[in-house]
Amino acid sequence: MLTLADCIAFSDLLPEEIDEICCHERLGFMVALTKGHSFLERPWGPTAIRQMMRDNLTRLMRGGELKRAVPTLETYHRFQARHPGGVERRAA
């Protein structure tokens, strides 16, 4: 039987990255984990996930929640370092 830790390890995402997808998409943790993993298998996936995090950052900063924005920004930078590149699917 797979544990939650196994699923996270297989997803190639960190728990805080999955939380950002949860927040943006308004999904439960396991559904967001699955969505994030499927995104990473596509050329545009890392770009799409980074955009979700930027959207979350924008919402927090516009709402004046700067203390909550700091961990999101750190998660964004960590994700960008782990998953650089990607194709902007909306540019075509």
Results as ranks from 00 to 15, higher is better:
Thr58Pro: 00
Met53Arg: 06
Ser38Thr: 13
Arg26Lys: 13
Ala9Trp: 01
Met30Arg: 15
Arg42His: 11
Glu17Tyr: 03
Thr72Val: 15
Asp55Asn: 12
Glu20Lys: 05
Ile18Leu: 02
Gly36Cys: 01
Gly64Phe: 07
Tyr76Cys: 03
Phe10Ile: 07
His37Pro: 00
Gly45Asp: 06
Gly36Ile: 01
Arg42Met: 15
Arg54Leu: 11
His24Ala: 13
Met52Phe: 06
Gly28Asp: 12
Phe10Gly: 08
Glu17Leu: 04
Arg50Leu: 01
Met61Cys: 11
Asp55Cys: 11
Pro43Cys: 12
Gly36Trp: 00
Phe79Glu: 07
Ala9Arg: 08
Glu41Lys: 13
Thr34Met: 03
Ile49Ser: 02
Gly36Ala: 02
Thr47Lys: 08
Asp55Leu: 10
Gly63Glu: 09
Pro46Trp: 03
Ile21Asp: 04
Tyr76Leu: 14
Lys35Ala: 01
Glu65Asp: 15
Leu13Met: 04
Asp12Arg: 14
Ile8Lys: 02
Gly63Leu: 11
Leu33Met: 13
Ser11Phe: 02
Thr47His: 14
Arg68Leu: 14
Leu60Ile: 08
Gly45Val: 07
Leu73Asn: 06
Met30Asp: 07
Arg54Ser: 05
Val31Asn: 10
Asn56Gln: 11
Leu66Tyr: 15
Asp55Met: 09
Cys22Asp: 04
Pro15Val: 08
Gln51His: 14
Val70Ile: 15
Pro71His: 09
Pro15Leu: 09
Arg50Pro: 00
His37Phe: 00
Arg42Ile: 06
Phe29Tyr: 09
Thr75Pro: 01
Arg42Asp: 12
His77Lys: 09
Leu13Glu: 00
Pro15Cys: 09
Arg68Trp: 07
Trp44Ala: 14
His77Glu: 13
Tyr76Glu: 04
Asp55Ser: 14
Gly45Tyr: 07
Arg42Asn: 07
Val70Thr: 07
Met61His: 12
Arg62His: 05
Arg62Ile: 04
Gly36Leu: 00
Asp19Val: 07
Pro15His: 09
Ile18Tyr: 05
Ala9Leu: 02
Leu14Lys: 10
Pro43Phe: 02
Tyr76Asp: 03
Tyr76Trp: 12
Gly28Arg: 10
Ala32Lys: 00
Thr75Gly: 07
Pro46Val: 03
Gly63Gln: 12
Cys22Gln: 08
Leu57Ala: 06
His77Asp: 14
Arg26Ile: 09
His77Gly: 05
Ala32Glu: 01
Leu13Ser: 00
Arg68His: 11
Glu65Leu: 15
Asp12Asn: 13
Phe39Gly: 00
Cys23Gln: 14
Arg54Lys: 14
Pro46Glu: 01
Ile21Lys: 02
Arg54Tyr: 06
Leu27Pro: 01
Lys35Arg: 12
Thr58Ala: 13
Arg68Tyr: 06
Glu16His: 13
Ile49Met: 06
Arg26Cys: 08
Leu57Asp: 04
Gly64Met: 06
Ile8Gly: 02
Pro71Ile: 10
Ala32Ser: 10
Gly64Cys: 05
Glu74Met: 09
Pro71Phe: 09
Ile18Trp: 04
Met30Lys: 12
Met52Gln: 04
Arg50Val: 02
Arg26Leu: 09
Ala9Asp: 05
Glu17Ile: 02
Cys22Ala: 08
Thr47Trp: 15
Glu74Gly: 10
Arg78Pro: 04
Met30Phe: 10
Ala32Met: 01
Phe10Tyr: 10
Asp55Ala: 15
Ile8Glu: 00
Lys35Trp: 01
